[in-house]
Amino acid sequence: MTQAPPSTGPLILYGAPHSLYTGVVRCYLRTQGTAYIERPTSHPDFAQRITPAIGRSIIPVVELPDGSIIQDSVEIIDHFERAGVPWPAYPEGPLQRVLAIIVQYYGSQAMLRHAMHYRWSYLGEQEAFIKDAFAAGSGPDMAGKIMARMQSYLPQLGVTEASIPLIERSFESLMDILEQHLRLHPYLFGGRPSVADYGLIGPMFAHLGRDPVPADLMKRRAPRVFRWVERMTAPGLDVPEFVDYGTDYFIDDSIPETLTPLFAHIADEIFPELTDKLVFMDVHVNHLQPADGQPVCDKPHQRYLGKIDTQFRGVPVTTGIQPYLLYLLRRADAVLQSLDETERSRVIAGLQRHGLDQALPGERGYSVDRRGHIEVWEIPS
């Protein structure tokens, strides 16, 4: 967190309506009833005050009334969680909490492939909508350049002619799984959204639930999923269909049967890619021997460390590696480390039942932290 020249007035969210990670923060603030003003990156304050303060042009950014600046959707959520909110987003049960973080990772990282495919591979069928969104967010002069840059990311996300049929099948399967769960429950872990919901809503709203082609598919195939998207983007807990359901997470750290297919789906999607990325980082760190606090990439605006050849549902793909994934998943490791031996064994057994025990990085001799709004290597002393 840094200080910009003090602002006056309410909390300000710098972002864009079509931005995946802005959508996460917007949903969280609306759910909590936190008043804010949203400004696009074309607002003069973003270039004049915010970008110099954080060292790169990136969204979302929250500016607090005291002038403090927070960048990154997870950091923003965690800031408000520490301060206290009406609807805390981390389940108290350790198994639920660890699984929620894994789902958050899946939505915010692994589903970039789905989100970007449906936005840019179908550009010809929804160009007017996409172009208008980018012009509104960044200004007409920058819209075309930003759109071209975003479209160029498809290869490093593993979006190819061979993988596209699997990506689309995956999205349809995910909708079918969520449709069955959301017929019985308003949110993934019960009566209020968790970090799992906030992780999924990024791609499921900004791209897949808003862009014309995937949004139409969602409405026709999975109406309860589309309703969940509406619920997540509405103020407070928008749950008129669930009278007297309550606002708690599932009792006794339990996992309903309707979530079992979701965890199986996630396990099928993230491996072996996640394992291959962690191995790449192991080798890289062993060779580099970085100092604690050293940026993970050569330049602050860079987020990709390199590329690997791996697989997505059995099809070879080449994907970029964001060390940020380690920052996300370390929060699940921290949950395990806080438990006594009996509870730790119970949670690990639960993860094994769902095929997700290898999603936690575990001890590797290094980690990734965020300091000064960028990812840095964290090396134990």
Results as ranks from 00 to 15, higher is better:
residue 292 D to N: 15
residue 120 W to F: 14
residue 224 R to S: 08
residue 221 R to F: 00
residue 367 S to D: 14
residue 201 I to W: 02
residue 250 F to W: 10
residue 89 A to T: 14
residue 28 Y to V: 12
residue 60 P to Q: 01
residue 378 E to D: 12
residue 331 R to M: 04
residue 62 V to K: 03
residue 122 Y to H: 15
residue 64 L to M: 13
residue 21 Y to I: 04
residue 3 Q to C: 05
residue 293 G to P: 11
residue 189 F to V: 11
residue 56 R to C: 03
residue 269 E to F: 06
residue 39 R to E: 08
residue 54 I to L: 09
residue 62 V to I: 15
residue 48 Q to A: 15
residue 240 P to Y: 03
residue 319 T to H: 02
residue 54 I to T: 12
residue 76 I to W: 09
residue 338 S to L: 12
residue 375 E to G: 00
residue 86 P to T: 12
residue 346 R to L: 13
residue 363 E to V: 06
residue 330 R to D: 14
residue 133 A to C: 10
residue 81 E to P: 09
residue 21 Y to N: 05
residue 175 M to G: 15
residue 238 D to F: 14
residue 324 Y to P: 00
residue 119 R to K: 05
residue 64 L to E: 04
residue 241 E to L: 07
residue 276 D to G: 03
residue 23 G to L: 07
residue 224 R to M: 11
residue 291 A to R: 09
residue 83 A to L: 12
residue 14 Y to G: 01
residue 285 V to P: 05
residue 189 F to W: 13
residue 338 S to I: 12
residue 135 A to E: 15
residue 328 L to S: 02
residue 277 K to M: 15
residue 16 A to T: 12
residue 323 P to N: 03
residue 238 D to Q: 07
residue 105 Y to P: 09
residue 228 W to A: 01
residue 325 L to I: 05
residue 79 H to N: 05
residue 282 D to W: 01
residue 52 P to K: 06
residue 335 V to Q: 11
residue 139 G to E: 05
residue 171 F to M: 14
residue 2 T to W: 07
residue 365 G to T: 14
residue 68 S to V: 00
residue 164 I to K: 15
residue 304 Y to L: 13
residue 119 R to S: 02
residue 157 L to P: 13
residue 71 Q to W: 11
residue 241 E to V: 10
residue 138 S to F: 15
residue 154 L to D: 13
residue 314 G to W: 08
residue 333 D to P: 15
residue 180 Q to N: 08
residue 75 E to K: 05
residue 96 Q to K: 07
residue 120 W to I: 05
residue 322 Q to K: 02
residue 363 E to F: 02
residue 180 Q to V: 14
residue 371 R to F: 00
residue 347 V to P: 12
residue 55 G to H: 11
residue 357 D to A: 14
residue 290 P to F: 01
residue 358 Q to Y: 06
residue 181 H to M: 07
